[in-house]
Design a protein around this nucleic acid. Structure first.
Lengths: 336, 336
DNA sequence: TGCTCGGGTGGGAACGTTCCCAATAACCGG
DNA sequence: CCGGTTATTGGGAACGTTCCCACCCGAGCA
């Protein structure tokens, strides 16, 4: 039982016996309005169920107070907390957040970005986009853009990432500190940050004098990738005593391969993941992993957007946040 | 390096040497335009990087071709696939999807809903909302509204749910079919559908002549809830040989409690969850569970919205979808 | 008493589209 | 060669706000 048409500012005005200007001032809480006008307007608005039309408002103001967030994959719980951070930073300054999604598909993503731009979002945050840099750059010319969790080098576009190199080093250092030497890695393929994580692994191994023991199995950011990667590592002679998987999901896949091989974690083999997703903290898994400060990442991305909205900064900034090791139950000293 | 102002239809028109009307027709692909006009417009638009302003368009058309989706909790992977369904059904008819979120908080949710309404979304889909029915009803008077995964009885608002009663029955029937008799349940507290799942459990037990063996431990839809619920069930004498947890996360918590008690799943005890989230399909967990047709749920919600947009239906519809059992590795015949 | 000041108000223009209608050009058949 | 179509085009009005400016009125001051 919808009413034919939503009430407009004029309807409220005529019912309250004032001009639309007065109603506008009351609704925005700006300008000076006499007490009785205000009361009359508020009452009329209430009775009519008036809701200001944000579409008309953003048309005339030429800004929408919306920030668009493009999520490459909503299935990945990694993004949820980043979005929390974005939202809280946005809400603090009166911005709203609109999420669009492109299901891990480059074209769908481009389409979703286009939607956000047509909607005239005041800024756009791209979470781990698969978009071509040229597309991102194009968007950056129209509207403030920030890229998260993807070290993309695009002029005029800010980037917020965690220090993947450092994170991988932390993992290796933790394992070496426990006494491990044959520390292997399951690679992350073309996943965001995978190349850096691998570089960090190799650098840390080298620095610790374990350069000769570097072993990398190909894999990706999926359970299956971790599973098969770990399988191939276990076939080595001698096999590693510890495996660093490039993300948590791959680590869980690796965990499965290790158990299938009849080994017990962490007694026979230690395992470290990356990202500290909800998965890792499940007691049944209790995975030692590297935490990215996700909430903070989201907040910084939003702040980058706000900076650009306010003063039209040209130079791209890059924020690199420190990861931290979270020790749980999949790591222990190596067997004797 | 943003350009001062995005190009408008007038800019394109003057550059192409035609009127704004012609540009409008070309961009919308409607009406009749001569070949040369069309080419000139397209070229001018390309050169100027013209992007139609969806804000202005929806103002004059009085519809935005946006459907708003309010997600109560983005951390819950359960919703991702529903959103996939919504999006594909929306895209098929030229609608876009805007996601807003209220982090499991009733007020934040109401706020997010308000945003969607101010943005003049043509319809709103509420995923497992915590909103008060009165608030939902209020929204339903302004715009088509559908509620998903929450059996809310609100006039003028469509509902799409899975048959939680039937799903619970499936779980019990599966376990009984394997030979179990002492089948206990960890309750879902005030979670969406929890009451129905419990009713289904009790009904099935009764029908199978196991009414006297009904055992329900209190719990909720969290890992912790499943953990403590299972603990209390294991203290019974005799303990159950099978546990039906009210959702997958609780089942994983229960799994942990069972293992801590020194029992092996499924040899000593069988375990069934609900929802068939990504968690359940991890090989390391491989949980037998009840699948909700999530994609289909999303599609049906979108279709309900479209029905209401087209003909202004008054009567509320309720779609109840059939769940299915997914047998994995946490269920087996009871120990002898 | 005349003037200025400022709180309060109202109305027109603008935002960038789409929609509608009138105007023009081209073409057809008789 | 003319009236009547038909294809194409252009311009004004409208959508629902905000912004800006002009205006009114009473009070305070010289």
């Amino acid at each position: 039982m919808q009413t034919d048409r939503p009430a407009t500012i004029r309807d409220v005005a005529s019912r309250a016996g004032v001009s639309k200007s007065v109603v506008s001032r009351v609704m925005r809480g700006a300008g000076t309005v006499s007490r009785q006008s205000r009361d009359a307007v508020l009452e009329a608005a209430e009775q009519l169920g008036y809701r200001p039309n944000a579409v008309a408002r953003s048309l005339v103001q030429r800004r929408s107070f919306n920030v668009g967030v493009l999520v490459s994959d909503l299935h990945n719980p990694f993004f949820a907390e980043i979005i929390d951070g974005i939202e809280s930073a946005a809400a603090a300054v009166g911005y709203r957040m609109l999420i669009a999604t492109g299901n891990r598909d480059r074209n769908a993503e481009a389409q979703a970005l286009e939607t956000l731009l047509e909607l005239r979002a005041d800024g756009v945050i791209l979470l781990s986009p698969r978009l071509l840099p040229a597309v991102v750059a194009g968007a950056g010319q129209t509207v403030p853009v920030a890229v998260v969790a993807n070290l993309m080098r695009v002029p005029g576009v800010d980037v917020v990432v965690n220090d993947d190199v450092r994170g991988a080093e932390l993992a290796v250092e933790h394992l070496a500190g426990l006494g491990h030497r044959r520390i292997a890695m399951v690679d992350g393929g073309d996943g965001a940050g995978a190349a850096e994580r691998r570089r960090g692994y190799e650098a840390a191994m080298g620095r610790l004098g374990l350069g000769g023991l570097i072993q990398v199995a190909s894999g990706d950011y999926t359970e299956e990738g971790g599973y098969s990667g770990a399988q191939s590592l276990l076939r080595l002679d001698p096999p590693p005593t510890a495996i660093f998987a490039s993300n948590d999901l791959a680590a869980v896949g690796a965990l499965n391969a290790v158990e299938e091989a009849g080994l017990t974690v962490p007694r026979d083999l230690s395992l470290v993941g990356y990202d500290n997703t909800a998965l890792a903290s499940l007691r049944h898994i209790s995975l030692t992993t590297i935490n990215q400060p996700r909430r903070e990442i989201g907040e910084m991305a939003m702040q980058a957007i706000l900076r650009r909205i306010n003063k039209n900064r040209v130079r791209a900034r890059r924020a690199v946040l420190e990861p931290k090791l979270v020790a749980r139950d999949t790591t222990a000293p190596p067997p004797l």
